[in-house]
Deep mutational scan, measured.
Amino acid sequence: LQAFIKTLTGKTFTVEMEPSDTIENLKAKIQDKEGIPPDQQRLIFAGKQLEDGRTLSDYNIQKESTLHLVL
């Protein structure tokens, strides 16, 4: 599935991932794409901060969901 990552500066980019991917995997993909170390990334979806060990499906993240990236 493709999801949108929106930063506080208003920049939006897309990442490809599977519902079974962990938040940790997602942070690694963001690092590959944007060069931001995972330990500096905080991802917010539906008002909740996402925990590394959980999966996208745990948070009911669907295709074309928008996640907010806070540094």
Rank of each mutant, 00 (worst) to 15 (best):
G35M: 04
D39N: 12
I44A: 04
D39R: 10
E24I: 10
S57V: 07
L50C: 02
I30H: 00
K29F: 06
L50M: 10
Q2L: 15
E18A: 12
R42A: 07
K6Q: 11
T12E: 08
K11F: 11
F13G: 01
Y59N: 02
I23Y: 01
T22M: 05
E64A: 11
A3K: 02
P38W: 11
G53E: 09
F4L: 11
T22E: 02
E16H: 10
A46P: 01
I36H: 10
P19E: 10
G10H: 04
S65E: 08
Q41C: 05
D21S: 08
P19Q: 09
I30G: 00
N25I: 14
D32A: 14
E24L: 15
F45A: 03
M17G: 03
F4T: 13
I61S: 04
I36E: 01
S65M: 12
A3C: 15
L26S: 00
N25H: 13
T14V: 13
E18S: 14
K29D: 01
S57E: 10
K63F: 11
D52Q: 05
K11D: 07
K27Q: 02
Q41T: 03
P38L: 13
Q2V: 15
A46D: 14
D32P: 01
Q31E: 09
D21T: 05
S65C: 06
I5R: 00
D32Q: 14
F4R: 13
Q31K: 09
Q40L: 11
T12G: 06
I44P: 00
A28Y: 13
D21F: 05
I61V: 10
L1C: 06
R42C: 11
R54C: 08
L26R: 01
L1S: 06
Q62S: 13
G10E: 03
Y59L: 06
H68D: 07
Q31G: 08
A28G: 08
I30P: 01
G10W: 04
R54Y: 12
K63N: 15
L50I: 04
Q31H: 14
D32R: 12
N25F: 12
S57N: 09
E18R: 14
I23G: 00
G10S: 03
Q40D: 07
L43M: 02
R54Q: 08
G10D: 03
P37A: 09
T7G: 05
E16T: 12
G35H: 06
I61M: 08
Q41P: 01
T22C: 03
I61G: 04
Q49Y: 13
E34M: 15
T9Q: 12
